[in-house]
Write a protein that binds this DNA or RNA. Structure first.
Length: 468
DNA sequence: CTGAGGGCGGGCATCCCAAA
DNA sequence: TTTGGGATGCCCGCCCTCAG
């Protein structure tokens, strides 16, 4: 296995200073309140410093007081023994499964960039270890660190291309970043040219759902953890690229695209598998599955699921899942020399994220196994319950309008484990478990309710922070 | 070099309609 | 008239690209 210390470096994303604390709450999408040990406040500290003792004391005080809410400012003295600050939380998703426990340990970077309202950025969060998966014990030890910074995935792929750490893509000479592609103007993390023309679409995947649903072995990292129109658009663009021989984009030095790669970056090291999350976004899962079924290339470098490899063809979209280990800069593990391969020399920490190699893909999770269509609900373009005409041109007054109308909840019909796609006829998708091959640790579809979440109705609420 | 604008998508206040 | 709930659209902070 290859272990290569990667980010932070380059593109101004270094962690010159970090602080460790405990997450109080995440709210307003991009904000989070974090309590720091007394004395740490907003100054930050060098990446090699410690301070876990003070932090634990602050956490203990918080636990004793039962703190879980309360409005705080940007760096206020907290009467419970610590200092509470407001941080920027650069994750666009609901962070499903990561916010289920109070006072999770977090690592924040401290930026000196002028103009920032909140200098702290939440970079990673620790989830419970196996001994705590069944409860809500608060601060815990030994759990996995999970990277929550979505933009790191793009940077990671770019850096892997720079350092020739993805031999599965063949050979390439030039690399372009943030390349626009497709008729809808999507941007992609990187493109490599020539030898093997490549478009990379990256997605940051974290284990979705309550962790107790995904016990080891094996844990499965699922993506997306919400309905993501953007993720669907990326997959569609890649499919279009390989199926139609898309005209040469501006970054391709005049050559036509022939190969596309969809890269998933798993920002945690406790997941052995990656799978598209049909439960959260059945449309996206269907598209990912089409990449394999359309006789496009699907290469599982670790061929655990040979049935997926069968779908490989001469040319098409390649699916890659990258395992990474996210580590606080203060840990000893991040400060050691790590082994690399090829022409890359060993790197010394501070490492925020370590590339471990490729993860196994499981495209059969969420695949179609039941074509009876029984119990399905119409997902796409469901008519509103009251027949109200949407305002604006094309019936779409803004982007959120589109997003909301695609939500399964508005279909008005219980999904009951199967989702019927309105376009292209009926195509039931068996969600977790279902009629398909049972996967240990995954709840059967009978446990899912009409929203496609846990049967007790708690899953939706658990997956959201700052709900009303 | 600087400023404008787009993208990200859930939160939230408000509007609006159907049913009681 | 009241109530409940779906629909609507702005807001949030940061990063990046592009135009001037």
């Amino acid at each position: 296995m290859t272990a290569d210390a990667l980010l932070p470096r380059g593109k101004g994303r270094g962690y010159a200073k970090t602080v460790q604390g405990h997450l109080i709450r995440r709210y307003k999408r991009f904000l989070a309140d974090v309590v720091l040990p007394a004395g740490d406040s907003a100054k930050g500290r060098g990446s090699n410093s410690g301070g876990s003792g003070d932090m634990a004391a602050a956490a203990t005080a918080l636990e004793a007081s039962g703190a879980s809410s309360g409005v705080v400012g940007n760096a206020n003295n907290d009467p419970r023994g610590g200092v509470t600050i407001t941080c920027h939380c650069p994750n666009t998703g609901p962070m499903t499964g990561l916010l289920d426990w109070p006072l999770s340990p977090v690592v924040c970077s401290v930026s000196s960039a002028p103009g920032r309202k909140y200098p702290h950025t939440v970079e990673m969060l620790q989830v419970p270890g196996p001994a705590h998966q069944g409860g809500r014990q608060g601060p815990r030890r030994g759990g996995a660190w999970v990277g929550v910074h979505s933009a790191l995935a793009n940077q990671l792929v770019s850096e892997l291309l720079d350092r020739r750490l993805l031999p599965q893509l063949g050979e390439w000479r030039d690399v372009a970043r943030e390349v626009p592609y497709g008729s809808r103007g999507s941007r992609y993390a990187a493109a490599a040219w020539p030898n093997n023309p490549v478009v990379n679409s990256t997605a940051s995947a974290s284990a979705t759902g309550a962790p107790e649903l995904l016990p080891p072995p094996p844990r499965i990292a699922l993506f997306p953890d919400t309905v993501s129109e953007r993720a669907q658009r990326h997959v569609e663009d890649l499919m279009e690229a390989v199926s139609r021989g898309h005209e040469a984009p501006s970054w391709s030095w005049g050559q036509q695209l022939r190969q596309a790669v969809c890269v998933f970056v798993i920002q945690r090291d406790d997941c052995a598998l990656f799978a598209p999350c049909a439960a959260k976004d059945p449309v996206y899962a269907r598209l990912v599955r089409q990449l394999a079924n359309n006789e496009m290339v699907y290469r599982a470098v670790q061929p655990v699921y040979a049935l997926a490899v069968v779908q490989a063809a001469a040319a098409g979209v390649q699916m890659l899942a990258l395992r990474t280990s996210v580590r606080p800069p203060t840990t000893a593990a991040a400060a050691v020399n790590v082994t690399t391969h090829g022409d890359v020399e060993g790197t010394t920490a501070p490492a925020a994220i370590v590339f471990l190699g490729l993860a196994e893909l499981d495209l059969e999770y969420g695949s179609s196994t039941d074509r009876s269509g029984v119990g399905g609900g119409v997902l796409v373009a469901a008519k509103t319950k009251r027949g109200r005409r949407p305002r604006g041109q094309d019936g779409r007054s803004d982007k959120t309008d589109v997003k909301r109308r695609s939500k399964p909840k508005q279909a008005g019909t219980a999904l009951a484990g199967n989702v019927v796609m309105a376009e292209g006829g009926f195509e039931p998708l068996a969600l977790a478990g279902g009629e398909g091959p049972a996967r240990e640790g995954i709840l059967p579809t009978s446990e899912w309710n009409a929203d496609g979440v846990l049967g007790d109705g708690q899953g939706r609420r658990r997956g959201r922070a700052g709900s009303r």
